[in-house]
Design a protein around this nucleic acid. Structure first.
Lengths: 243, 243
DNA sequence: AAGTGGTCTAGACCACGAC
DNA sequence: TCGTGGTCTAGACCACTTA
């Protein structure tokens, strides 16, 4: 079983503030309470409040002005993704204004290709668990996502695997592994016939290909992802914030 | 004139640590000194060391293990970009292993299109300063970058503008404006004849289109960018790190 | 048991913006 | 001048890993 750690004070404060921004208790463009007011309200130190605000600022939710105050980003509605939640496709589809749904196309075992065996640091032909899923935005197919994990990592019966879990949680639940970091290559691609028939792309449209590698804290490759993204329907939109 | 602020203690510590990672004083995969050792060495508090290490961890340079230590990411060489320096094309070309160079194709005034006037919150047809530049990797053209700024923002004589400055510094130097955040749309595109002739793309290859909007702390749109990226030569590669 | 990073506190002083 | 966020300190205690 996985240990559910009780949330830290900072995490709880963060959740409350995110919620207040989401439901416009703190409305877009408006000024939020000062650091000292917040630390009084929550009964935590100013340092704790500051670590939370720093995180929200990096994600572009708030803007801070020395000598003036902290303000909710007036464009908070446009921020569909930021580093850290980038490849949470459900969230991404939602923030594009669609209702997400997922269809599991296949869960199967197969042998690793040469590229996969190199990327995962395993033997050529070693057995992989391969999951292919299709994400829908309002019933339109938008992302074809496949992930592979070496079968040797799987510690729980695989027949129990739920197709709707994000790869991060699959690794936690079934492999007892934590993803420490991920490297993503973004490429532009002209879809082949097969992918086009699944994503229903018009003929002359290019799509985005996202190649992901997930690593543990020991720099051990845990899993690979190969995702095809129809950017005619969905915006892949990043936020960068400074200070 | 721009004020050159003396660097904070934390920034100085960060620079030293980044340098040590870069020149392999702390070699990839190895353990670096503990927080207390670093705070002793630099004569700063542990909290200061921690804020620096937190930043390096988010950028994927180091991995931290509670109860064990802090380690240099063994894949530090693969990390070509991270949130915050994402669109520093010179850095991106360098970390792909090429020598970067920039050619300024044009610096001119022209009227804003409808889309541009909406995105910048100005009148249709208002005058824009438009800069188009071509980035080379080892003499191969890889990125076609154009940026526009409303002429009304420009406060210094424009004939002095150097074509090699990143948009961020152009806004600082000539408009006295600071970019607080940027929103980037990543799209896949089939290059038209014109772009293809500049980037020298093979016919059937798709390219990446990066649409950027730059904003001030007041949520005022400052500039737009439209970049075409040849991902056959250059990897657009992001890092995400957790904890 | 010892040492590491993780969390949190209480308080100091500074830099900046608005009044 | 006052209140804001920015920086930094010294120290406490906890959670985890390793030996």
């Amino acid at each position: 079983m996985r240990i559910i750690q009780s949330k830290s004070v900072a995490n709880q404060v963060e959740e409350v503030l995110r919620e207040r921004i989401r439901d416009a208790t703190y409305s877009p463009g408006s000024r939020i309470p000062s650091e000292s007011e917040l630390s009084d309200e929550f009964g935590v130190s100013r340092a704790t409040v500051r670590t939370v605000l720093a995180k929200l600022a990096v994600n572009g939710l708030i803007l801070r002005r020395q000598g003036n105050g902290t303000f909710v980003n007036a464009r908070v509605g446009e921020l569909s993704a930021h580093s850290g939640n980038l490849w949470d496709f459900v969230y991404l589809i939602e923030s594009n204004g669609f209702t997400p749904s997922i269809k599991t196309l296949s869960i199967e075992h197969r042998a690793a290709t040469e590229k996969e065996s190199i990327a995962l640091g395993i033997e050529l032909g070693e057995e992989l668990l391969s999951m292919t899923r299709l994400f829908y935005a309002d019933d339109k197919p938008v992302i074809l996502a496949s992930n592979v994990v070496p079968v040797s990592f799987v510690r729980e019966p695989i027949d129990q695997i739920e197709g709707n879990l994000p790869i991060r949680e699959i690794l936690q639940k079934y492999c007892y592994e934590e993803i420490a970091f991920a490297i993503t290559d973004i490429r532009s691609k002209i879809a082949g016939q097969e992918i086009r028939s699944i994503l229903g792309n018009e003929l002359d449209h290019a799509i985005l290909e996202l190649q992901l590698s997930f690593y543990s804290k020991d720099n051990l490759p845990l899993a690979l992802g190969l995702n095809y993204f129809n950017d005619a329907i969905l915006r892949l939109c990043l936020v960068q914030a400074w200070n």
